[in-house]
Design a protein around this nucleic acid. Structure first.
Length: 213
DNA sequence: ATATCGATTATCT
DNA sequence: GATAATCGATATG
């Protein structure tokens, strides 16, 4: 179960938070809270795993080959949602980083659900039997997007620093412990770069890990 | 427990 | 026409 519930008066992170190097933003996003508010429902989940994607110098980044219609948000101002569709099946959520004009972003890879867990299960189309099933809700970029109802049509370009946007990132005072850095997952280019950040020993981190840490 | 594979489509070469 | 920042199912030890 959630070890804490974010306050109702938690506020979004400021835009300057995202106007920096994606590595720094990624590391500092660990422990923050992703919030989705719509039609009276409120989903919240703690960010426990992210990956940094650098600008045009990062061959694994969608921004590597320059600005296109798809990746335009990454070249725009910081703090906006870049949502892409992958493998004909899944959406993935990023937040744009760096000052406007420079590309860069952070991919959300795993969340620890805090509130609205039943709604997340419904969005994912799964039934929760015991706590062991919880990671299936939000562990993995495709899964967390589905749990939060994130699609490109609905959310690409959304301002993640505005509570009015209905999708934003807050700080509830939680401080990340045991931050681990390692190679990114699922890529073939620049695979060795240590740009994946996650909370060690957290059960919601994606991948074929279970116990230990 | 790890390994391999098929699904399915927007985007880019 | 090939590829992809994934997932869930199936196969095998």
């Amino acid at each position: 179960m959630p070890e804490s519930v974010p306050s109702a008066r938690m506020k979004p992170l400021a835009r300057v938070f995202f106007a920096r190097n994606p590595r720094r933003v990624a590391r500092e996003l660990l422990g923050k809270v992703l919030v989705r508010e719509s039609a009276g429902s409120r989903l919240t989940a703690r960010i426990v795993e992210v990956e940094a994607y650098l600008g045009e110098k990062d061959s694994a980044a969608h921004s590597a080959a320059g600005k296109t219609l798809r990746n335009a948000v990454l070249f725009g101002p910081p703090g906006y949602a870049y949502v892409y569709f992958i493998y004909g099946n899944h959406y993935c959520l990023n937040v744009s980083c760096e000052p406007e004009g420079r590309a860069g972003g952070v991919l959300f890879r795993a969340l620890e659900p805090l509130t609205g867990i039943e709604a997340m299960a419904e969005s994912r189309g799964v039934t929760l039997h015991n706590a062991k099933d919880w990671p299936r809700l939000t562990s993995g970029p495709g899964r967390l997007s589905e749990a939060f109802g994130i699609t490109r049509a609905r959310d690409n370009g959304r301002d993640l620093t505005s509570a009015e946007s209905g999708l934003w990132i807050g700080d509830d005072g939680y401080r990340a412990r045991r931050i681990v850095v390692g190679p990114r997952i699922g890529i073939t280019k620049a695979a060795a770069m240590p740009l994946r950040y996650y909370l060690g020993r957290n059960l919601f981190v994606s991948g074929p890990r279970l116990r230990k840490g």
